[in-house]
Every structure is written in structure tokens, then in C-alpha cells.
Nucleic acid binder design. Structure first.
Length: 1201
RNA sequence: AGGCGUAUAGCUCAGUUGGUUAGAGCGCAGCUCUGAUAAAGCUGAGGUCGGUGGUUCGAGUCCACCUACGCCUACCA
């Protein structure tokens, strides 16, 4: 017996379903059911375990769960391994904040081991937190117990053994950090953590392969550097941190030697780099102007084009290429060089000179007094250049060209003479190397000037005071020509927001000259959705990317397995495994043993060079964290340790991730690591792909399409959305969304705190202590209103009548063939939906499925149930097999629908399923499961429905669709002729061009008649006599035949006598004469439409034409009034909250004879419809309500008998 | 600066190989239906399909140029 259904209370229902799954261990049973079946390999992209989960994470995680559920229900074995991203600067940054450590030195003083342990703790704690949130999402993974993870976090750093219960329920005991290093291994199960030894060691395998192919090198490069973090930033990171910045830019004189009163005019936006000037570069092909200042006779050289060049003219008008990068309001338009010089007293042009003629001129640098400027070999000294100092190199040089052949020095923004500081700029560095000049690299790791820079020593390059000092010094020397504020796009630290400086660094790189191999692999993969052209985007990135900088001078991360001879940097080796390291170790293994292979422990290990015999130390750098995420197709599937398992699961069938950014991050690292890992194992690019299909999706935005930020309180935490909007609603919304388009989620009102009812009780703040706030979402509300509520109402309708009738779903089935056509129709529609479900999930297109399911729910609710209500209302009769057929049909449809929707809305589908097959109300609590039930214990243990070809009847589907179209047309006619549906009309005539449709209409005449409330339905061959026909040429067929005549045909055909064209409607061709041209038209060549007449309303659509008689007789009017009367009585019953079966007495008052006559005539009908025992007219009804019956007013009251 | 993409109703977007009167959802206005429904249905207003030119009997659709916007990449010393 079904439990009574009342309030939907979706969110409480979700809590109940969660409880049901956990007490019944449904997920474990699902895995057992599918063990040994064909595999579907999903690879989870690790989520950064550094903060709680927000609604932006939930989109991707909903995809992951929905596809996993679909493939589980279709009988596949899955891995169910979630991943946490654990290592890297983002964790360090948060831990630094937490511990109040501002600099790398502070971390060193605090103790790297303590710091690293704290990083581990933070990751474990947020992994626990995200696990709980993911479980609330209904995300079925083999989760570690959150509290067990927290226990590990607490004990990290202690050698005391702790007992840990693995995800598979096994109890293991050891020191916490040793347990932590093994998390996610194939024996324990549970999420993978990228800090695990397995993960790190597999990256070593990768790096060893790179090394073997000669791709690992140490590079000296000038790179963006953060003084605060003490670290260089890779290309990937810089892309995320660019900002519009205003710098003071300077025009400066470089006085020429041996040329009295003559100077080069140079320009810079980074004044601090003038301290490190070495050369001045020109373009030999440009014309340079020689001008003399009127004020003091000084002569300047600069590029001719630059004199009147309108600097940043376009940017001033249009900004810098992004909406948020518009020209700063407080900065005026930049002056031209000519303006600047005029303001200083004017100038005279003395002539022009080619750049080539200037090359070789010697000049005096702006800061030649600094000791670094006079240091042989530059600063730091370069061994091969010990014969010169920076001052010796102060020459005008040829700027040269880049790899694409473009000149480095161009006219435009500056002066055409480029201040060159090979220690402070990327291009400068390259020029320096080419020309063999020394470099000066003034900054230490902390971003401060080092010794040898006089008053600058100890100053921070990005401080304003440093710029002030430069300006002051230049003024003293008379070298400063002009200062201005100059806006441009400048790299910043993506975490701290600090400006980056360009600094000469030595970092470790992978030479990516094997990019073509990666591109070949990329082309073997399906990139979805098609519209974003992911494959080309990835290939484009691979074409343009530079060598991969894999090192970072930090503390928490992969220990790069590179051991180097401190005396000779060319003497280095890459170690491929811990076993190899142990074998090679000559010192310090005892420090590492028992600890994880992280800093600081691993730094103690030294090996001996096989080449030179020197003792090698590990470089102190840690690895780029995208290595951590990119190695997972190997590490998590057991490439090194469980090769047989790896062979079964690699490559992954599917990955999905938010795509902006990932083309250069995760997707890139997966592809390159996999290509390298497999280079010595196969030549087939298809065998090297880490995954077969990728589904990318865009970003979650607020309701107005703006990004949501944690910092300004607009970001929505997962629980805020889950407990206010409902998870099923969210999931439907995510799966409904076009993945190529940003999802406009909703708004969080940070000024409106709310208490949330969670499965664990009421909360008013998150675990991190921020208040939980009101969240609104229009798309979520719409989803709930359009799909979930109608689904619920359909279910509630079924249950509440089935209870009254004591319907038992296990009763003998009425054979399908004996059921009414409408039953067979909804079952057939259901088969179509099943088919679409399989197709959509297999094509990773959830939007298609969810949209189709929505249409089905509409058909179910607004056609099947509405049209069948009377079958369910009929009084109880055990022999009423038609009624039983209706119940059985509806039961089967809703149960199947739940199975189909289980991957989408796992909670609601479970709740409905439980009541429909076990009579269990999940919210009310647990009940026993009948032992003999043929039904699986949970909807999620069901096999996914398969199409039953016997029930699929395309023709019936089409037939009903036609009837629905006719009904729609009929409603249109009623609307246009102002005839309400309750007013019966005499006749509808229908005609259509397609014989199939004609037959359909005849078969479903009863339905159409009923829906449209007409007395007679006639299928006719044509509507002659009722309507006027209008003829138009069918351009698609006539166009190709008559070409240029078409214009005339279009104009003249409609004006012809309809009689002359009549044969066309009978299927015959007609030859007509149009101003001298003879035209033969086939029936297909014309389109016929109808025009209204006074007594018939007409409408047409897709070849179907209907006409409804609008002539009213007194009988028809009276019947319409009767229906109005019934309708108002019903409303009164509803208003009085009467039960459906209550019998009533009706009293009414009216002046109108026609109403009285109508009631007499229709008394029986009214009484039956409204369950009235009496129907009495009174002079006045004081307690009644005035209503309109037809054109007349009636006062009406009802009371229970 | 280079590459890619987009431009259609107040908003968000569909629009097949070129074809007749350019659609949907939301919002707005009106009407209708309703004893499962917190719904739903129908109608309407609102469009020079970014602009200019071209190909064609015919262009929202194809081509060229222009404008605006977005994304990616690079970058101004």
C-alpha cells in the first residue's frame, strides 16, 4: 500500500534519501552488482583541497556523477575515485596567512618540516570538508570517511601510530604521515591525493623519461618573479595575473661620448632597471632624427616616426582589450614627443640619420657609479665575459630580430632607442646573449636590490620610493627629460596581487620540441562540445607554447628528482624512482627514510655522479603542480605498481572539466605527460591518449553574468545553494545547461543571513565561520516549477487515487494490446524517451536528455493524466479492468521515469520509486523491504530501462502529435473568435494534405472533439464554401524551374482567379498564362492557405487546416451556461476545502429566466458533476458569491449535505 | 599587434543544403482551462537579422570590406 503523498518538501526528501542510501549501503551494493562487468573508465580531475566547495565546482561534479550513474546502471564496472589536488603555491599561500608568515625567510625560520606538515593538514581538512559537501550533492565516489581524514590531519607530524579506517573498511595503523603518503592506493580505495608518494614517484618516472630523451635542462632566463613569494612564475600562471597598471615612465638622456652635448633619448616604464643599463639598441633600418633644444642647445637622437606618434591613442579611446581594462579616469591623454619637447622650450630639427650609422657610438650610462656597473663579467659575473664590464658595453647596438623575423626595436611608443638591461628583461636578455655583452641582474630572490647598487641596495624594486630615488638621481645628473604616468598591462602575482618584476633566474625546463607528438595525440581525442572547437584550441596552444618551466623555488610540492653538482651545473642527473635513489644514495638516506619524499627530508639525500664521481645534491626547487594533476592517468591506475590494473583502465573513457584555462593547464599536462610516458612503448598516437573523450564546460556566473568572488561575498558556498534551492533542482539545472555557455546561477545576498536546515542540523555559518546567506536563483526556480513540481504532482495524483482504490501494482497485468490507445501512446512516448536517454548519455549530451524528459513530463501531466482523470475518479469496482489498465500504465510510466531520471535527480527519483514499489515514505522513516519483491532495493540498483520495441509505436506517437496540433489550432480559432472553451460549438471541419494525418485525425476524432468541446467533427477533403483560398508559389520548387520569372509569378499568382487554380488542390497540374509567359504548375509548386469567413473561424499549420463553426444556437448557449455553472460550483467546493467525495447542496439566485430554464434542462448533469443532492433556486442567497454564467450574473452557495 | 569567434525581440539564445509570414524561453499585456497541479495553455505588442557592397530569380544564411564585442596568444623597452 502506498503512503499518502502530500507536501513535496524536496529538500527534506533529499536528506532522507541520503540517510536511506547510507544505512542500506546502496552504493556498496551497486559496486558489488557491477563487479567484473565491462569497464567504463572515468578519470577525475583533482579538485584543489584548499577551500570549501562552491556552486561553481558543483556543475562539473554533477556531470561526473550523472555519467557515472548512467554507466553503472547500464552494467559497467567503475573506479569511482575522486581526486584531491594537494601540492603547490596555492596551499602555501593560505598556510602562510594562517601562520602569519610573510616571507620565505620566515618559513625557513619556522621550519620547513613544520610548514610542510601544516600544508598536509590543511589539505586533509579541506579534503574532508569537500567530501562532505560532495556527498550532499549525491556524488557517489569511494569516499574516505571525513572524520578519519581529520584524524590524520590532527596527527600529522607525530611519530605516534594512529589507527585509520580505509574507505574499504580495513583498519591500518602507522604514523599519520606515512598513512597519508599511501592514501588512495588500490588496496585501500578512497580518493587519490596528489601528494601521495605514488603520485610523486610516477612523476619521477616521467621526468626520467624526459631526461633520457635529453629534454631536461637548466635555463637562465629573465622571468616574471614575485619577490614576496620568492619564486618565478610559469607562462601558465602569468596568464591569470595580468592587470592594467599605471607606471611612471621616464624619458632619459644617455650622453654620447666624443660628441659634445649630444645624447640618445631613451624611454622606460620600469625606472629601476636603469641601474642595470648595459646597452642602447636601435633598429638599423629606421630613420633617426637629430634635434636641437632651443633652451640649452642640447642635441637628442630618436626615431623620426616617434616625433609626432600618437602614443596609446587607440587605448585612450578603446581601452586595453578587455572590458575591465578601460583607460584610467585620472590619467590624461599622452603627449606626443614633439609636444613634450615643445613644452621644454622648443626644438629645431637638424637632420636625419640611419640607425645603422649610430651603431657603435659610445655613451655614458645613467648609473655608472654603481659598483655593479664596473664589475668584470657583469653582475653576477659571467665566466666567458670577464674581459668587460657593463660600462665597457655602453654602446649603441643593433636590436636584431626575433625568431619570426620581426625587429626587436620598432618606432612607436618610445623613442626608437631601447634601454637594454639584459638582467631585467626577457628580450634584453636575448639581445645580450646574441651580442655577447654582460648583464646586470640587480635583484635577489626577495625582490630587493643586492650589494653593489649603492643607495639602491636593500630597496624593493616595486616600491614607489625606489622610483622616486631613480628620478631624484637622474635630476641631479641632469639626465631626466620628462616623467609621465603611463598605463599598460603588466603581470601580477595571481595570488597576492603584487606586481611581478623581471629577474634573471635559473630554473628547470622541459624542452618541448616534441610538441608535434603531443598534437598527434590531441587529434585522437573527441573534444566536446563541438561548438568550442577544443581540439583546435589545444593544438593552437601546443603550437605557441614555450618550454615548460617545471621548477619553483618554494617548499611544498613535488620534490624535483634532479641532483646536481654544485661546482658544475652541467653535471646533473634525474632519478626515476625512490628505489633508484636509495641505491644511489651516498648520504642522508636515513633522514628521508620513514618520511614522505618531500622537502626538507629529501634534501638531505646525496648521490654520486656516475660521470664525474662528484657528490650531487638535490636542487631545492619543487615541481609545477600541473605535473601532479597530469600524471594521474598513470599514478592512480597503477602504472608503476599494478601494471595489470593499469592496462585494464587506461586510457580513461571520459574526463570532464571546466575549460577556460584548462587547455593550457590540466588538458595540456595530461596530454604531454601521457605522450612522453608512452613514447618508448608505442608509436600509435591513439595508444598514447590519456583519455578518449573530453567534455568541457564553461563558468558559473551570477544572475547578471558577472563573475562571483569570494572576496566580495558574491560567491555561493555549496551548502547555501543545496539547502535553499535543493540539490535535485541544481543538478537538473546544471545538466540542462549548454556546456559552451556560462551558467548564470543566481545571487547571494550577503546582507541577509539565513539559517539552513542541513542533514546534520541547523547551521547559521559555514564550518569556516562565514555566515550562511540568502541565495536566489531564477533558473533554479524555473526548473523546479517546470519539471520537478509537475513530476511530483503527477506522482501525487497517482498515489492518492491509487490509495482510495487500493490499487495493487502486483495485480495481474492488463495486456498492453487490451489497453486504451492513450495508454499505449504514453507507453510508446516513454520508449522514445528511453531511446533518447541512451543516445544522449552516450554522446555526453545531458542537455538533450533533460530537455526531452521535460517535454515528456509535460505530455504526461498535461495530456495523459488530464485526459484520463475520469478513469481514475470512477467509483471503485474490482472488475474495472480499464481502470486497472490506467493505473498500471501510469505506475509503469512513473517508475520507469524515475529509473531514467535517477542519474539526474537521484534523490527525488529514489523517493518516488520507494513509495511506488515498496510503499515506503522515505521522509517518514524506514520500513522493512518485502523479502520477495521483484524490485531492486533502490532505484539506483535498477538496470537502466531498455526500449521495448513492442511498445514503441512511432505511428501512434505521430498520430497523437497531429491530434495535439489540431487541438492547438482549435484553441487558436476559439481565441480569435472570442469563444471560450466551455461554450460548446456545433462543428469542426478538418482537412489536411497528408493522408497519414488525415487518418490520424479520424482515429482521434473523439479526443479532438472532447478537447475542443464541439458537437460534431468532420474530416473533409477541402474547406470549399467555408473559406477563401489563397495561392502562393512554392519558391523552393518553382525557383529552380523558372528562375528570373519568379518575381512575376510571385506577384501575379495570388491575383489570379482561384477557380482557375482549383485543380491544383485536386492534385492536377495547371498551365497558366502570365503576361505572355506560359507557366505550368504542379500541385507541389503552390502553397494554399485559407482566409476566414464570418460563420467559421479557421486556422492552419503545416498542411493541416481547421474550421470551427461559430454560430450559436440557444441550445449551445444553454449548455455553455451549464458548464459555467458546474465550474463555479466546483470552485466553490474547492474554496470551502471540501473533500473530493463530499456531497453537497446548492442554492442559487438569479433574475434571468434563461438561467432558470438552463438549470431545469441541465439539472441532472449539474448534480452528477458536482455531487449535489439538491439544486435549489432562492430569491436571494445572502451567503453566496456572485458569478457569471454565460452573459448573466448568478449568486451561488454550496454547503455539505 | 596577431589568431579565432560572435553580432537575430526588452533579456538569454535557436535558425538545417540559400526559399515564402525569422522562431523559442523569460519578462510584459490580455484571454482561456482547471476537483492532481504551487500549475498549464493560447493570443498579442515588440525585429531596417550590426553596417556597406557583392554573388543569386531569391541572402538572417554564401563572399568582401567596415564597425562593435568576446576569447586565445603575444607584448610596448
Amino acid at each position: 500500500m502506498f503512503q499518502k503523498v502530500s507536501d513535496s518538501d524536496f529538500i527534506r526528501g533529499e536528506h532522507s534519501a541520503l540517510k536511506f542510501w547510507s544505512t542500506r549501503e546502496i552504493f556498496r551494493k551497486l559496486r558489488e552488482k557491477n563487479a567484473g562487468r565491462p569497464k567504463w573508465s572515468f578519470l577525475d580531475g583533482p579538485i584543489t583541497a584548499n577551500n570549501p566547495m562552491g556552486v561553481h565546482h558543483a556543475w562539473g561534479r554533477t556531470y561526473k556523477d550523472a555519467f557515472q550513474r548512467y554507466f553503472a546502471m547500464t552494467g559497467h564496472e567503475l573506479r569511482y575515485q575522486n581526486g584531491f589536488d594537494c601540492q603547490g603555491l596555492w596551499v602555501e599561500v593560505e598556510v602562510e596567512k594562517q601562520l602569519g608568515l610573510g616571507t620565505k625567510n620566515a618559513i625557513n625560520d619556522y621550519g620547513i618540516d613544520q610548514f610542510v606538515n601544516e600544508c598536509k593538514r590543511r589539505v586533509l581538512n579541506f579534503a574532508a570538508r569537500q567530501t562532505e559537501q560532495s556527498q550532499r550533492l549525491g556524488y557517489w565516489m569511494e569516499w574516505d570517511s571525513p572524520n578519519e581524514l581529520r584524524k590524520l590531519a590532527e596527527n600529522v607530524g607525530s611519530e605516534e601510530p594512529v589507527e585509520y579506517e580505509t574507505a574499504r573498511g580495513e583498519k591500518v595503523a602507522d604514523a599519520a604521515h606515512r598513512l597519508v603518503s599511501k592514501l588512495g592506493n588500490p588496496d585501500w580505495g578512497g580518493s587519490y591525493f596528489t601528494f601521495s608518494t605514488e603520485n610523486n614517484e610516477t612523476i619521477w618516472t616521467f621526468l626520467k623519461k624526459c631526461f633520457t630523451r635529453g629534454k631536461v635542462y637548466r635555463g637562465h632566463d629573465v622571468m616574471p618573479w614575485s619577490g614576496r613569494s620568492g619564486s618565478a612564475y610559469s607562462q601558465m600562471e602569468i596568464a591569470d595575473g595580468r592587470k592594467l597598471t599605471v607606471h611612471r615612465s621616464l624619458f632619459v638622456k644617455f650622453p654620447l661620448q666624443e660628441r659634445e652635448k649630444e645624447s640618445l633619448l631613451v624611454w622606460t616604464t620600469t625606472p629601476w632597471t636603469l641601474t642595470s643599463n648595459v646597452a642602447a639598441a636601435v633598429n638599423p633600418e629606421l630613420d633617426y632624427l637629430k634635434v636641437q633644444m632651443k633652451r640649452d642647445g642640447q642635441i637628442y637622437y630618436f626615431a623620426k616616426e616617434n616625433l609626432n606618434y600618437k602614443r596609446l591613442d587607440k587605448e585612450f579611446k578603446e581601452g586595453f582589450g578587455r572590458p575591465e581594462w578601460s583607460w584610467p579616469e585620472d590619467i590624461g591623454k599622452l603627449k606626443t614627443l614633439a609636444q613634450i619637447l615643445k613644452e621644454q622650450g622648443g626644438f629645431e630639427e637638424l637632420g636625419t640619420i640611419k640607425g645603422a650609422e649610430m651603431v657603435g657610438w659610445k655613451y655614458t650610462g645613467p648609473f655608472d657609479e654603481l659598483p655593479a656597473q664596473s664589475q668584470p663579467g657583469g653582475y653576477p659575473p659571467e665566466k666567458n665575459l670577464m674581459d668587460k664590464t657593463a660600462v665597457d658595453c655602453h654602446l649603441v647596438v643593433d636590436g636584431g630580430r626575433d625568431s619570426k623575423g620581426n625587429a626587436h626595436v620598432v618606432a612607436g611608443e618610445g623613442t626608437g632607442i631601447v634601454h637594454t638591461a639584459p638582467g631585467c628583461g626577457d628580450v634584453d636578455h636575448k639581445i645580450g646573449i646574441e651580442l655577447g655583452i654582460v648583464g646586470i641582474a640587480p635583484l635577489g630572490e626577495n625582490g630587493l636590490f643586492q650589494e653593489g647598487f649603492g643607495e639602491f641596495t636593500g630597496r624593493n624594486a616595486i616600491d614607489q620610493e625606489t622610483v622616486d630615488l631613480v628620478i631624484e638621481k637622474l635630476q641631479e645628473k641632469g639626465l631626466l627629460v620628462s616623467v609621465e604616468k603611463y598605463p599598460h598591462i603588466y603581470p601580477h602575482c595571481w595570488r597576492t596581487g603584487d606586481e611581478l618584476v623581471f629577474r634573471l633566474v635559473d630554473e628547470w625546463f622541459i624542452d618541448m620540441d616534441w610538441r608535434e607528438e603531443i598534437k598527434d595525440v590531441t587529434r585522437q581525442i573527441d573534444w566536446l562540445p563541438d561548438s568550442i572547437d577544443g581540439q583546435n584550441r589545444e593544438v593552437e596552444w601546443l603550437t605557441n607554447m614555450r618550454d615548460w618551466m617545471i621548477s619553483k623555488k618554494r617548499f611544498w610540492g613535488l620534490a624535483l628528482p634532479i641532483w646536481i653538482n654544485p661546482e658544475d651545473p652541467s653535471d646533473f642527473e634525474v632519478i626515476g624512482s625512490l628505489a633508484e635513489l636509495k641505491e644511489r644514495a651516498v648520504e642522508g638516506w636515513d633522514v628521508l627514510e620513514g618520511n614522505t619524499p618531500h622537502r626538507p627530508w629529501i634534501d638531505a639525500v646525496k648521490i654520486k655522479s656516475e660521470k664525474t664521481g662528484a657528490v650531487l645534491s638535490r636542487i631545492e626547487d619543487v615541481g609545477n603542480p600541473w605535473l601532479d594533476a597530469g600524471i594521474t592517468p598513470f599514478s592512480t591506475m597503477g602504472y608503476n605498481t599494478h601494471r595489470d590494473m593499469w592496462e585494464k583502465w587506461y586510457p580513461a573513457d571520459f574526463v570532464t572539466e571546466c575549460f577556460p584555462g584548462q587547455f593550457r593547464n590540466w588538458f595540456y599536462s595530461l596530454l604531454s605527460l601521457s605522450t612522453m610516458m608512452r613514447y618508448d612503448e608505442t608509436d600509435d598516437p591513439a595508444m598514447k591518449r590519456p583519455f578518449k573523450t573530453l567534455l568541457g564546460h564553461r563558468l558559473v556566473m551570477d544572475e547578471l553574468g558577472r563573475p562571483m568572488h569570494k572576496s566580495d561575498g558574491t560567491a555561493i558556498w555549496f551548502e547555501e545553494a543545496a539547502e535553499q534551492l535543493g540539490v535535485d533542482t541544481l543538478r537538473w539545472m546544471y545538466l540542462n545547461q549548454n556546456p559552451a555557455v556560462d551558467l548564470r546561477f543566481g545571487l547571494r545576498d550577503k546582507d541577509q543571513p539565513v539559517a539552513l536546515e542541513t542533514p546534520d542540523g541547523t547551521i547559521t555559518e559555514t564550518q569556516e565561520g562565514s555566515p550562511t546567506c540568502k541565495v536566489t536563483s531564477k533558473p533554479a526556480d524555473e526548473i523546479r516549477r517546470q519539471f520537478l513540481i509537475p513530476l511530483w504532482n503527477s506522482y501525487a495524483f497517482f498515489v492518492n487515487y491509487a490509495r482510495l482504490d487500493e490499487f495493487n501494482p502486483n495485480d495481474e497485468q492488463v495486456p498492453y494490446a487490451e489497453r486504451q490507445e492513450i495508454d499505449r501512446w504514453i507507453l510508446s512516448r516513454l520508449q522514445t524517451l528511453i531511446q533518447v536517454a541512451h543516445e544522449s548519455f552516450q554522446a555526453y549530451d545531458t542537455s538533450r536528455f533533460v530537455t526531452t524528459a521535460g517535454q515528456f513530463i509535460d505530455d504526461l501531466s498535461n495530456w495523459y493524466i488530464r485526459r484520463n482523470r475520469r478513469r481514475f475518479w470512477r467509483s471503485k469496482d474490482v472488475n474495472d479492468s480499464d481502470k486497472r489498465a490506467a493505473y498500471q500504465t501510469l505506475h509503469e510510466v512513473i517508475v520507469t521515469l524515475c529509473q531514467l531520471l535517477a542519474p539526474v535527480i537521484p534523490f527525488l527519483s529514489e523517493r518516488i520509486y520507494q513509495n511506488l514499489v515498496f510503499g515506503r515514505d522515505l521522509v517518514a522513516g524506514e520500513t522493512e523491504t518485502p523479502a520477495d519483491s521483484k524490485w531492486p532495493e533502490s532505484v539506483h540498483l535498477c538496470d537502466y530501462p531498455q526500449v521495448n520495441p513492442e511498445l514503441l509505436d512511432e505511428e501512434l506517437n505521430a498520430r497523437t502529435a497531429t491530434a495535439q496540433r489540431v487541438v492547438k489550432l482549435g484553441h487558436q480559432v476559439r481565441e480569435m473568435t472570442n469563444m471560450r472553451v466551455r461554450q460548446p460549438l456545433a462543428e469542426i471541419r478538418i482537412t489536411c494534405s497528408d493522408p497519414g494525418q488525415q487518418a490520424a485525425i479520424e482515429q482521434l476524432a473523439g479526443v479532438i472533439q472532447d478537447e475542443l468541446n464541439v458537437k460534431k467533427i468532420t474530416a473533409v477533403e477541402n474547406l470549399d464554401g467555408i473559406v477563401q483560398y489563397a495561392f502562393k508559389p512554392n519558391l523552393k520548387t518553382v525557383g529552380p524551374k523558372y528562375g528570373k520569372l519568379l518575381g512575376k509569378i510571385r506577384k501575379e499568382l495570388p491575383a489570379l482567379d482561384p477557380q482557375a487554380l482549383a485543380p491544383l488542390r485536386a492534385g492536377e497540374s495547371v498551365t497558366i498564362d502570365l503576361s505572355g509567359d506560359s507557366i505550368t504548375l504542379e500541385p507541389d509548386d503552390v502553397l494554399v492557405s485559407t482566409e476566414q469567413s464570418s460563420e467559421w473561424g479557421t486556422a492552419d499549420e503545416q498542411g493541416v487546416q481547421v474550421a470551427i463553426s461559430t454560430v450559436l444556437t440557444d441550445e449551445l448557449i444553454a449548455e455553455g451556461m451549464a458548464r459555467d455553472f458546474v465550474r463555479h460550483v466546483q470552485q466553490a467546493r474547492k474554496d470551502a476545502n471540501l473533500e473530493i467525495e463530499d456531497r453537497i447542496q446548492i442554492r442559487y439566485a438569479t433574475e434571468e429566466a434563461r438561467v432558470r430554464e438552463m438549470v431545469e434542462t441541465w439539472q441532472d448533469y449539474i448534480s452528477t458533476e458536482t455531487l449535489a443532492d439538491s439544486l435549489a433556486r432562492e430569491e436571494s442567497v445572502e451567503d453566496g458569491k456572485s458569478v457569471n454564467v454565460g452573459d448573466f450574473s448568478v449568486v451561488l452557495a454550496v454547503s455539505v449535505s
